[in-house]
């Protein structure tokens, strides 16, 4: 029994020291990590809405997840929205960030996370594919041509963007 208590005590001391050390490191790096994440997010948003100046996140009250972003220009006028769409691709969930103007036209899309077959599905990140979305109507992407041999991945991007655009449109309508 005495042995047991001694072991517990030693392990406890080690854990306390470790926890203290980690708390210090966390306090030192915490703000930096937050800042890095924020600047990364702002850069990505700016990429899909180059003309924008300010982005406000619209969050779901229940669990604080971001639904979409309202986008404002220099005169603080609402010019569009940015949203993240995700769809099941060939071998992974493909996440796409899309910026749309008030008239449903797409500004730019950017595929931000995926894990598809190199040489086929991975090509949805290429400019040749994504630039087709520019100025298309976000609710009807029939003008976009799928990549040969990577139809499933291409469709995942197109369908998820269309679906999410529809959802956002509905949400905004309900807001008014």
């Amino acid at each position: 029994m005495k042995e047991m208590a001694r072991y517990g005590f030693i392990l406890g001391v080690i854990c306390v020291v470790a926890a203290g050390l980690l708390a210090t490191v966390n306090a030192l790096t915490g703000p930096k990590i937050l800042a890095a994440a924020q600047s990364e997010e702002q850069a990505a948003l700016k990429e899909v809405m180059p003309t924008a100046v300010k982005f406000t996140a619209i969050k779901l009250e229940a669990d604080n997840t971001t639904l979409y972003y309202k986008v404002f220009d220099r005169q603080d006028k609402l010019i569009g929205f940015v949203f993240k769409a995700s769809g099941k691709g060939y071998s992974s969930v493909i996440e796409t960030l899309a910026g749309i103007f008030l008239d449903d036209k797409i500004s730019v899309i950017k595929v931000i996370s995926l894990n598809e077959t190199p040489g086929l599905g991975m090509r949805v990140t290429e400019d040749k594919f994504t630039s087709q979305f520019n100025q298309q109507n976000s609710l009807d992407l029939s003008g976009v041509e799928a990549i040969t041999g990577a139809t499933i991945s291409s469709r995942a991007v197109m369908d998820s963007v269309m679906k999410k655009a529809q959802e956002i449109k509905e949400l905004i309508k309900n807001d008014k």
């Binding site: 050390l21 980690l22 490191v25 966390n26 790096t29 990590i33 990364e40």
Partner: peptide, 12 residues
């Protein structure tokens, strides 16, 4: 954990 936190802060 120290390594991971530093990496997150300085090389995301």
């Amino acid at each position: 954990t120290i390594t991971e936190l530093c990496m997150k802060a300085y090389s995301p």
